[in-house]
C-alpha cells in the first residue's frame, strides 16, 4: 500500500515538475508548482520527515507561489 502510494506520488511529482517548467502560461505554471510543492510535502510526511514537510508546505506551497504571483502581476503576466 505505502509502496504503491510512494510510486504514485513520485510519478505525480515528476509529471507536475515537467508541466511546471514546460507550460507556456506562467500563471498555470505557478499553480502547478504549488501543487508540486504540496505533494512533495505529503511525500516527506509519508517518508518520516514531518517537520521538514510542514516547513515545505509553508514555504514551498505558500510563500514562494505568492512571491511568484506578485512578480507575475508586476511584470504583466506575459510569457
Amino acid at each position: 500500500m505505502t509502496a504503491t502510494l510512494n510510486i504514485l506520488l513520485l510519478l505525480f511529482l515528476v509529471v507536475s515538475a515537467i508541466i511546471a517548467v514546460r507550460c507556456r502560461d506562467l500563471l498555470s505554471s505557478v499553480i502547478v508548482f504549488a501543487a508540486y510543492s504540496l505533494v512533495m510535502a505529503v511525500l516527506w510526511q509519508l517518508q518520516g520527515a514531518p517537520y521538514p514537510a510542514v516547513a515545505l508546505a509553508i514555504f514551498g506551497a505558500g510563500a514562494t507561489p505568492l512571491l511568484l504571483l506578485a512578480a507575475i502581476r508586476k511584470t504583466g503576466g506575459q510569457e
Binding site: A17, A20, V21, L26, S29, F33, L68, I72, E79
Partner: peptide, 11 residues
C-alpha cells in the same frame, strides 16, 4: 524566461 528560471531553481 526569467521567472521560469526561478521556478527551475526551486525545483
Amino acid at each position: 524566461n526569467l521567472i521560469k528560471k526561478v521556478i527551475g531553481l526551486n525545483i
